[in-house]
Design a protein around this nucleic acid. Structure first.
Lengths: 187, 187
DNA sequence: GGTGTCATGTAAACAGTTACATGATTTT
DNA sequence: AAAATCATGTAACTGTTTACATGACACC
């Protein structure tokens, strides 16, 4: 809970950064599930500072606003490692589409198929968005070979989850689509 | 947004029920991502009533508390159908484990493998929990053959998503486990 | 001259959870 | 005697999002 703090510690464990930098990294990350809004990040940083897990240094610049550069402390690193070692939480997915589909028996066959088709398109869009996100990843510090492998596997998880979902919709369409007269609009 | 209201309308579209019944159904449902706490449900019912999407009838009972039985109105049914036809939202998953794994290069090989092993176990537990939920499904009204098929496909989606995740962890363990000396603790 | 980026921060609102409160009956 | 089920509702809190506020510079 409140694990955005650990995400912040994790990012800072690679390099000192400002709140603004963290915001961009979290917004752009394909696997950190927070919007990266100011409120959460600046508040978290204040609390992390209060708890001695990070320090900050103010850099005054001419002709642009002052920066507060945050650096993780030894305590912060230890806290992060402890958290990493805690029991993993199971994944929780919010597939609002399934809630919709649950009441889709209200629809005519054509309407249902149109709905599924839209979902299929939506998933395809998400796959492309994720691939783009991964390519322009702005947070890419030096990593060990093992570290690189870990990140590759994380990215693979995300993409392949969407691909699994895509395969599922296609299956659903073909199973439900039989009643549309066996037409196949895939060709 | 605020789609728990539509989940409630959806359930009521099959049969009139009390807030208490709805709470149990939502708590037990494998695909409705709400905890089914009183606060949300009773509040939503008040609002749905205010908006004319449901009506209620109070049944006084001796020797147990009075019931408010909610019934969906024609307006409610129309609102539900309209919502079902709106564009599907993409699935959003919160895999906090990936956030942990992202900083797992802090760990020793054995610690990392132990973490992955725990995640694997956690997923297996989730699969069993989901299967149990599906077997003791308390909300099983009469459905059309197509309605039945839709629900089966929804359930399949959930289980197979977990199975996909399980396959991924196994892959990760074997890819990262090479450095443990090729030992295979699966046997 | 308007939009976008850099950079910090606050206010208000919404969504969702846990816990509290009541009171009778049934089960262990 | 204690715990669970039925049944309704409220209070307090956490987490998260959207929007507001400021101010300088760069780009089109």
């Amino acid at each position: 809970m409140m694990s955005i703090k650990y995400a912040i510690l994790g990012i800072l464990s690679y390099q000192p950064l400002t709140g603004y930098d963290l915001k961009k990294i979290i917004q752009d990350s394909p696997f950190m599930p927070w919007s990266g809004n100011n409120n959460q990040i600046y508040k978290s940083l204040v609390e992390l500072f209060r708890d001695g897990l990070v320090t900050n240094e103010i850099h005054h610049q001419e002709s642009s606003p002052s920066k507060k550069i945050y650096t993780i402390t030894q305590e912060g690193l230890e806290e992060l490692k402890e958290w990493v070692l805690t029991s993993p939480e199971p994944p929780e997915s919010k597939k609002l589409f399934l809630v919709k589909l649950a009441w889709a028996d209200l629809l005519k066959d054509e309407e249902l198929d149109a709905l599924l088709s839209k979902y299929e398109e939506e998933i395809k869009v998400q796959i492309i968005l994720q691939q783009e996100k991964q390519q322009r990843e702005i947070f890419s510090p030096d990593r060990t070979p093992r570290g690189k492998l870990i990140w590759e596997l994380i990215y693979e998880n995300i993409i392949s989850s969407y691909e699994h979902e895509l395969a599922w919709v296609k299956k659903v369409r073909s199973k439900l689509g039989v009643k549309l007269g066996g037409r196949d609009d895939e060709l």
